[in-house]
Design a protein around this nucleic acid. Structure first.
Length: 813
DNA sequence: TCCTCCCGCCAAGCA
DNA sequence: TGCTTGGCGGGAGGA
């Protein structure tokens, strides 16, 4: 008796024979139990014929037929052999590989066309499938669940599904990508990698605790099934298990690929993210193993669909299993981009688009009505991370401190916090005074289409990057305006605290349509009464009210773009145009809570300043300008050309900027530093700084840190040639380096942060990501004694404490 | 030894 | 109440 050889290549053979665009082929049924009469459908008959065209399959079928012809005799013999040779019998059983879920999925997919005719619905009866494929029901559920997550099938009734094929796949992937972006999976991946990274150098750290605290408190942890319009979801047990469902896991897994660059996701990272979202209190090893098991299940099905492919990622710690996306490329929603870039005023398609998307993505961020005054969950994670770093710093203040990514994130936190504090320090009177003192031409009356949307109801936008609200803080004295990106909730906070504060949405990051319009954008400053208590007779109020319904369905970026284009010829533009002419690059802004100077450092506004100084406005604004906390002292564009910040960034805030707006990076130009910090006016930010540093634990309570700038500029000589000045694009390309220094009062050292992102030209080539952190000795105004190397790998100097490097190599099996 | 993942128990939920 | 659905983890095959 010749049973099919238990050849290792069997499954591979079947896999390789199947071409993606061919009609699927049938796979041979298990030899030992050939059904007397296969219920061949016309389709399967056709497939059988096609498969017969393959010599390999034909020969295999011939063997099978030969076997079938003498089945009775052979079966008897088989039984005899089974009795006689138990080991042999065992060997005759299909190997594990032949029973793999991937192979089974191939068989399953072979039954149905990739693109079924819409008029002719294919139904899936689980009983039939299990019988024909000779598998347990349980296995079919695994497959069907994953297919369901991609909307390739949908459940019709008990035991019954509808086959959609790949018709819905592009739409589904688009939706998943969108949801993945909103869910900030990139940041989560970065954070996990960073923690692993830190753990390499500090194995005794409270890694698990950190991980748990990072994810466990996430309010956005629950995510339900992402549906498509028109594809109804009728899972059998929707309530109890939906969050752990293989469907949801599968969707999340796919999301990770869609948002990652490169599109390679290791199982470990995926599992950690999935565990984190299940609000696990700790990283239980068994849970982790279970998650990995499920991911293998999902990966097998996705591999059968040719959406992913197994690879291995070789890091310094070893070789890790990972998967690479091989499915269709899913670009960011081009429709959205177009809308953002071209919309001028009220644009109904935007709201329609968003409504549709919201329908697609159900309850990704469950609205619990807590968005007001709460930090976004991603920042909560950062804060926890910062706290952990703080502990480390406090525990060993004189020992070489390890500067982790968290410390960098701490700076982000500082910046963000400083702005909040700065705003909260400004009394309503001050702000109103500021408004009053601003020259009328500098503050043109708003037009209906310019009305900022800060008074819009909260909760309209999901918590996503796309909904941060960029605003401008005009600073007439310095001639510098500050762009501030705020989450809608923060924007609301601002307006609540500061009734008369001037806020002006700006075009969001990387809007292609605003290239070379920076001078216009920079100077479009309108007033907004954020206080909704104002009387209805006031024009701005009524205007705001008029616009509010529209705002409900717009993203901030869309709104702000409208505004930027609505006031192209404002007087302010004329007045300040000369200041802005030196800037000929396109503008993009930090979508964050940063306080960002929008122009290079200018010092020619003394007349304006003197006027306002009389009322104390200048000093106030000067504070904003020179705030050491914000660390956003502008610098000449010439100094900025050498620096860029990768869009591939570890902060939860997508930093996207042009060579011009790079001035907003936490880099300090010394010239500006001194010119801006010599003000004799009281500096409210000093107390804010001390409050923060004390609060965060970098300085003990009672200790006061002078409000000297803590950030210093260190020119980066490398990689500057990579910056694409002509395009002004904010998308950073390979090899870009960003460096900045940060002075820690507690350790009296400067920290130099350096990031470099390297991406291969070819996806198959090894990829490397290097990140370096340094600490340098010296005081607040000391230039770090480090030189930056272009490759980021050979940097050493006195005071260099920590130079972790990570290289990532990707190899395919 | 570790990776991979099959297998089947058993509980939740449905008809 | 029987059946369907599917979470889960033990443990075995394979590298």
């Amino acid at each position: 008796l010749k049973t099919p050889l238990k050849q290792a290549s069997t499954s591979q053979l079947v896999l390789t024979e199947r071409q993606p665009d061919c009609q699927p082929l049938t796979t041979p049924p298990k030899p030992k139990e050939t059904p007397p009469a296969d219920p061949w459908t016309p389709t399967s008959n056709l497939k059988m014929l096609i498969s017969a065209a393959s010599p390999e399959i034909r020969s295999r079928d011939q063997r099978r037929q030969l076997s079938d012809s003498s089945s009775e005799v052979l079966q008897t013999k088989h039984c005899l052999q089974e009795h006689l040779l138990g080991d042999e019998y065992e060997k005759s059983q299909p190997s594990r590989k032949e029973k793999s879920l991937g192979l089974l999925c191939h068989k399953f997919l072979a039954r149905y066309p990739d693109y079924p005719s819409p008029s002719q619905k294919s139904y899936i009866c689980l009983d039939e499938v299990t019988e024909e494929l000779h598998v347990e029901r349980r296995r079919i559920y695994d497959i069907v669940n994953v297919l369901e997550s991609l909307h390739m099938v949908s459940r019709l009734a008990r035991n019954r599904y509808v086959w959609h094929g790949r018709h819905n796949l592009p739409q589904t992937l688009q939706a998943l990508r969108k949801v993945g972006e909103e869910n900030k999976y990139i940041q989560q991946i970065q954070m996990i990698k960073r923690r692993e990274y830190e753990h390499e150098f500090d194995p005794d750290s409270e890694r698990n605790e950190e991980m748990a605290s990072s994810f466990g408190s996430s309010e956005q942890s629950e995510m339900s099934f992402v549906e498509l319009p028109g594809v109804e979801f009728r899972a059998a047990s929707v309530n109890g298990r939906k969050y752990k469902s293989l469907r949801v896991m599968s969707q999340k897994f796919v999301m990770l690929f869609l948002v990652s660059t490169p599109q390679i996701v290791s199982l470990e990272v995926a599992a950690k993210i999935l565990i984190g979202e299940d609000q696990l209190e700790d990283l239980d090893k068994s849970k982790f193993k279970t998650k990995i098991r499920r991911l293998y299940d999902i990966a097998n099905v996705l591999s059968s669909l040719k959406l992913i492919k197994k690879v291995h990622v070789t890091e310094e710690r070893g070789r890790k299993p990972a998967f690479k996306w091989t499915g269709p490329e899913v670009l960011p929603n081009t429709q959205d981009i177009k809308l953002e870039a071209t919309s001028t005023t009220c644009s109904p398609p935007i709201s329609e688009s968003i409504t549709s998307k919201e329908q697609c993505s159900k309850a990704l961020f469950p609205s619990k009505g807590k968005q007001n005054f709460t930090r976004h969950s991603s920042l909560i994670k950062l804060v926890k991370s910062i706290e952990n770093d703080r502990r480390k710093i406090q525990s060993a203040p004189t020992s070489p401190a390890k500067i982790s990514a968290s410390t960098y994130l701490f700076i982000i936190f500082l910046l963000e916090t400083s702005f909040s504090l700065f705003l909260s320090q400004m009394t309503a009177e001050e702000m109103q005074m500021k408004c009053a003192l601003s020259s009328p031409e500098a503050v043109p009356k708003p037009e209906p289409s310019q009305q900022p949307a800060l008074s819009q109801p909260l909760g309209v936008c999901p918590a996503s990057h796309s909904c941060v609200s960029p605003v401008i803080l005009p600073h007439p004295q310095s001639g510098v305006s500050y762009a501030i990106y705020l989450h809608p909730s923060q924007a609301h906070t601002v307006t609540t605290y500061s009734p008369g504060f001037m806020l002006q949405p700006l075009p969001c990051a990387n809007v292609t349509g605003i290239k070379n319009n920076n001078s216009k954008i920079l100077n479009i400053i309108t007033t907004e009464e954020g206080d909704t208590q104002r009387g209805p007779d006031e024009p701005t109020k009524s205007l705001a009210a008029e616009e509010r319904p529209e705002m409900k369905s717009e993203t901030s970026s869309q709104r702000c773009l409208k505004r930027s284009q609505a006031l192209p010829e404002s007087n302010l533009i004329k007045r300040r145009k000369s200041d802005e002419e030196s800037l000929d690059t396109s503008l993009t802004f930090f979508p964050s809570g940063y306080l960002i100077p929008l122009t290079h450092c200018t010092h020619g506004n003394k007349a304006e300043c003197s006027t306002k100084e009389k009322a104390g406005v200048c000093s106030l604004q000067h504070t904003a300008y020179s705030s050491p906390i914000t660390g956003v002292i502008p610098m000449p564009a010439s100094e900025l050309k050498t620096v860029n910040i990768p869009a591939f960034h570890i902060t939860p805030l997508n930093i996207m900027l042009s060579p011009n707006s790079i001035a907003a990076a936490p880099i300090l130009s010394n010239s500006c530093l001194y010119s801006s910090s010599t003000s004799s006016a009281p500096n409210p930010s000093s107390s804010a700084l001390n409050f923060m540093l004390q609060h965060i634990g970098l300085i003990p309570a009672g200790v006061q840190v002078p409000a000297n700038p803590v950030l210093q500029h260190m020119p980066v000589s490398s990689q500057s040639e990579n910056i694409n000045h002509s395009s002004g694009s904010t998308i950073v390309q390979e090899g870009k380096v960003i460096e900045f220094t940060f002075y820690s009062p507690i350790s009296e050292s400067n920290f130099l942060f350096s990031f470099q992102f390297l991406q291969p030209k070819e996806p198959q080539e090894p990829q490397a990501v290097t990140e370096n952190f340094f600490r340098t000795p010296g005081g607040p105004n000391t230039e770090p004694a480090l030189s930056a190397n272009s490759d980021g790998t050979q940097r050493t100097s006195q005071g260099t404490l920590y130079i972790p490097q990570r290289k990532l190599e990707v190899s395919e099996d």
